[in-house]
Computed example of a mutant assay.
Amino acid sequence: MAGPTTAQRGGSKSKNSKSAARSGPSRPGGRAPRGGGSPRLRLPRRRLLAWTACAVLLGGAAGWALYGSSWLRATHVDVSGVRVLTADEVREAAAVPLGDPLVSVDTDAIAGRLRERLPRIGSVTVERSWPRGIDLKVVERQPRAIVEKSGKYIEIDGSGVRFATVDHAPQGVPRLLVEPEDSSSLRRFGPPRLEREGVRVAEALPPALRLDARAIRVRSYDSITLELTGGRTVVWGSGERGDAKARTLTALLKAARGADHFDVSAPSAPAASGS
């Protein structure tokens, strides 16, 4: 019997090719993946779920450590920077909630209480000191002038703030005397403004001159006089150009050691007189 013709062989190959194309490429083992998914997509998803679970556990542990653990609670308060105030006074005014979780302690509220209850405090830094402490770093106001009233002394800092009343005058701080010479000066400026001008002069003095100053006498805005040790007086004028006047006075005191009256109201043309 004759074999298949060329046309028949070609037709058979064509049918086989179409059948192979429909069935697609063969897979190892001859099995298709179940569920239509890919193993390469399932693995990262499992890792993501594992990482999410770990993150939740770690977050819960951190929250418990910060808020529930007895190891991270405020148990003590350290105070630094005090000079006139005592550390116990600062602690009492701060009213730190000891025993509370350290992370929940309101440091801004503590700073506000200190400034309100202790006006001598010019600034304060409140910091958490892990694991159990609160640090209070205090900067006290420094008196630049004092005002005597009813046998006591009111301390005034360089910005004009009256912050304390004491029984004894602090050493090296000049007394401020506001004595308006006419009513027109009072009507225009008023005692508080004249007092601030006197403090402005005190703030401009370098430490050596401030120690020599016994009094700052304010008669008007542009009539301020310093009284120094040894009976020496200084016509200062207004509180303006304080730094220039202080430099001029320092040089003048060295150049005219025998003088007892100085005028630096015009610092570019100073004068000295007296024996």
Rank of each mutant, 00 (worst) to 15 (best):
T5N: 09
R9L: 11
R22Q: 13
P25C: 15
S26R: 15
G30N: 08
A32C: 14
S38A: 14
P39L: 11
R40A: 15
L41C: 13
W51N: 14
G60N: 05
A61M: 08
A62T: 09
L66E: 02
V79T: 05
V82F: 05
R83N: 11
V84T: 14
E89Q: 13
R91M: 06
V96C: 02
V96W: 05
D100C: 08
V105S: 01
T107K: 10
G112D: 12
L114A: 05
L118W: 05
S123A: 11
I146Y: 06
Y153W: 07
E155T: 09
G160R: 01
V161A: 11
D167E: 12
H168S: 15
D182K: 05
S184W: 11
R187I: 10
R188T: 11
R193W: 10
G198Q: 00
A202F: 02
A215Q: 00
A215C: 02
D222E: 10
S223P: 13
S223Q: 15
T229C: 04
E240N: 13
G242D: 01
D243F: 10
A244N: 05
R247N: 09
L253Q: 03
K254C: 05
R257F: 01
R257D: 01
G258D: 00
A259P: 03
H261P: 09
P267K: 02
P267G: 01
A269W: 13
